[in-house]
């Protein structure tokens, strides 16, 4: 029983360690070494974009997009 619990706790701790490794070692390494990932990640951080959002209302900048797109459709610049 004791061994079983210990094994489970060790598995849990290993899992937590892997997550920590992914978050603080592997991911920063990936961003550092893949140029396109680095540029995009820096852009996302600078502009505080919720890139993990699952719906349009979760992302603030969709509001800008909507205003812009709606303006184009409603008041399409035609000039004289």
């Amino acid at each position: 029983m004791y061994q079983l619990n210990l094994k489970r706790i060790l598995s849990f701790v290993s899992g937590v360690f892997i997550i920590w490794l992914f978050m603080f070692v592997l991911s920063p390494m990936l961003i550092e070494h893949v140029e396109s990932a680095k540029t995009l990640a820096t852009f996302i951080q600078q502009n505080d974009i919720n890139s993990g959002a699952i719906y349009w209302s979760d992302v603030e900048i969709t509001a800008d997009a909507e205003l812009g797109a709606r303006s184009t459709v409603t008041y399409l610049p035609k000039g004289k």
Partner: peptide
């Protein structure tokens, strides 16, 4: 994902964001 679309679109330009986000909203 909508968030990823917005990030990738805004990364290109504001106009690309407008189009990308609009299409994603319509898909939503």
């Amino acid at each position: 994902a909508t968030g990823a679309v917005a990030a990738a679109g805004a990364f290109l330009s504001q106009k690309a964001l407008y189009v990308a986000a609009t299409i994603k909203m319509i898909q939503n």
